[in-house]
């Protein structure tokens, strides 16, 4: 299990690096799909089977198809960042700042005092069943608000992408 996790982490991190440093957005999108699959594998190792399935269906399926669709729709023939010289200062400052953020996060996590780990869940209750039970009892109101949010997003996307009617 540990070895499997390490392999998945290596895949996720290397594909993440490739997402950031590819020239063409299409290749970035394809590597991001690899990244999402590796993260879904890590969810499986954490006994979150339902979330892993949703990750593959929603992220690697729906969201990335939307990205690829828009990239093809805009038809960006030229690779990025050839017309202008690359901003060296921007790169240096960006990488320095993000390393600083990472160090800050690591410091915060190392200072945190965690309570003892939880007990094993009751036998016989699968992950999907437990998620469904929590979703439709304790988290019912957020669940319903989510549907309103999705409706608003659909309306907003349609209004923004609509051609102006002359």
């Amino acid at each position: 299990m540990q070895i499997l996790f390490m392999i998945l982490a290596a895949i996720a991190l290397s594909s993440g690096v490739l997402v950031v440093f590819q020239r063409h957005p299409m290749r970035s999108a394809l590597y991001l799909i690899v990244n999402f699959f590796a993260v879904a594998g890590m969810y499986l190792l954490a006994h979150a089977e339902f979330i892993a399935a949703v990750q593959i269906i929603v992220y690697a399926g729906a969201i990335m198809v939307l990205f690829l669709f828009v990239i093809m729709l805009l038809n960006l023939r030229l690779p990025e960042e050839e017309a202008k010289p690359p901003h060296v200062l921007q790169k240096i400052v960006g990488i320095t700042l993000s390393v600083f953020v990472a160090l800050l996060l690591i410091y915060g996590f190392s200072q945190a005092r965690l309570p003892a780990p939880g007990k094993e869940a009751a036998a016989g209750i699968g992950n999907t069943e437990a998620v469904a039970r929590a979703l439709f009892t304790d988290y019912l109101l957020p669940f319903e608000v989510t549907s309103v949010l999705l409706l608003v997003a659909i309306v907003g996307a349609v209004v923004l992408a609509k051609q102006k009617l002359k």
Partner: peptide, 21 residues
Amino acid sequence: VSVALFALGVIGVLVRRNVLV
């Protein structure tokens, strides 16, 4: 892994100029 992925995302947002990326 979470911190590393988050830092990679921050690098991408700060360094890249294509809004899709």
